[in-house]
């Protein structure tokens, strides 16, 4: 059996919509603004292909023409002519109805760090800063293990309330924040960052974020006022160690 062109069109559009929506069911939605653009061009492309030959264009448009012209289709016509304005009205209503959602904002999660960080009464050069304890991983594994363990203590005393006991950002308080605390699990989070960046983020917290990360400043505390330099470095060792990630190193 040959599927009518118009039905083919509708099915294809639905399939495209399904493909774009599918990631959302697995927790990584494609943003609505982008789906709108994707769908626009998907529909246009399907239309272009379907009208690229005279024959298929005819097949596509004949039922539509018939709907308008054919006296025998009066009932269907009336239904369609009633339903289309209603669909339009629903869309318009949903677009303009007031909502409590905060306006869309462009926010950089990992903004470019400043070149220097002032903390603990000295200046750190973020461009070259390295974790002073990192080298122990090779030189003195036993000592390194000890430090990681101490870092774990720091983490569970301070960080886990938000970042979670499995470092997956599902801590007790996590849902109360906007923006959400970031997870450390996964290969595309802290693995992409240098330790100096992490050190900067921990040290200055939410208030230390530059303008591109506004307006919703993260509620992360300014840890340099609460922890010592060594404690921060140890906690960093711990979060990399626990998640099995290796910090990005400086290009040589």
């Amino acid at each position: 059996m040959k599927i009518p062109k118009l039905l083919q069109f509708a099915v294809l559009v639905l399939i495209a919509y399904g493909i774009f929506k599918a990631p959302g069911w697995f927790g990584v939605p494609i943003p609505g603004s982008l789906i709108m653009m994707y769908m626009f061009f998907a529909v246009v492309t399907i239309l272009l292909v379907m009208t690229s030959t005279e024959k298929s264009a005819q097949e596509l448009f004949t039922p539509i023409k018939a709907l308008v012209d054919d006296p025998s289709k009066a009932m269907t016509r009336n239904v369609v002519f009633a339903v289309i304005p209603i669909i339009g009205a629903v869309i318009v209503f949903n677009q303009v109805k007031p909502s409590f959602e905060a306006p869309v904002e462009l926010r950089a999660t990992h903004p470019a760090p400043p070149s220097t960080l002032r903390a603990f009464n000295k200046s750190f050069n973020i461009g070259t800063l390295e974790n002073p304890m990192r080298k122990l991983a090779k030189e003195d594994p036993a000592k390194f293990k000890e430090l990681v363990k101490e870092g774990g203590v720091v983490y569970y005393r301070n960080c886990f309330y938000c970042h979670g006991d499995k470092l997956d950002s599902k801590g007790h308080f996590a849902q109360g924040f906007n923006p959400l605390p970031l997870p450390f699990q996964g290969k595309d989070t802290i693995a992409q960052l240098q330790e100096s960046f992490v050190f900067w983020r921990i040290s200055t917290g939410g208030p230390g974020l530059p303008k591109e990360s506004t307006p919703w400043l993260s509620s992360m505390p300014i840890w340099k006022d609460l922890l010592t330099e060594d404690e921060i470095w140890k906690a960093i060792l711990f979060i990399y160690d626990y998640t099995g990630n290796v910090p990005r190193s400086w290009e040589k």
Binding site: G27, V28, P29, P31, G32, A102, V104, S169, N178, L180
Partner: peptide
Amino acid sequence: ILKPWELKTLG
């Protein structure tokens, strides 16, 4: 460009 709920889901 993300709506707040999308931002929340994506983290």
